[in-house]
């Protein structure tokens, strides 16, 4: 899946799209190494940083990993599930529609 995500970010460069991760690994140094070695090109929240009262995944009722949520430009939910291919297909359509609707929305 890393390859698909990396490719999507590259494909969407300079377009109105962002891939944001919520990473659940406890060992931060290990995950930083993986980000570097696997050339992961997206920014991630720490799911449960030190001192946090609750986990982001708990607030979002995430019960299985990976879970993908697709949000539109107004942060409205369009997809929530585990099917990466379906999510990516939807994203390509939504990005193209947004570009038509508001040219320059990537700025």
């Amino acid at each position: 899946m890393y390859d698909h995500e990396r490719s999507l970010v590259e494909e969407m460069k300079n377009r109105p799209f962002a891939l944001i991760g919520v990473n659940s690994d406890r060992d931060l140094s290990k995950i930083r190494t993986i980000v570097k070695e696997k050339r992961l090109n997206w920014r991630s929240f720490q799911n449960s940083p030190e001192g946090a009262k609750s986990k982001i995944s708990a607030e979002w009722n995430v019960r299985g990993w990976p879970t993908i949520v697709v949000l539109d430009e107004e942060r409205k939910v369009h997809y929530r599930g585990h099917d990466g291919n379906a999510a990516m297909k939807m994203i390509r359509t939504m990005v193209a529609e947004l570009e038509k609707k508001s040219p320059g929305s990537n700025l």
């Binding site: 109105p16 962002a18 991760g21 919520v22 930083r32 720490q46 990993w65 430009e73 942060r75």
Partner: peptide, 26 residues
């Protein structure tokens, strides 16, 4: 929240874009 380097940021920083939020772990 904070990113993997401890830098604060918000999901709402990305409003105006299509966002794929990916709950992941290795």
């Amino acid at each position: 929240g904070v990113d993997l380097d401890g830098v604060k940021f918000k999901l709402s920083d990305y409003e105006g874009k299509i966002v794929m939020l990916d709950f992941w772990g290795d």
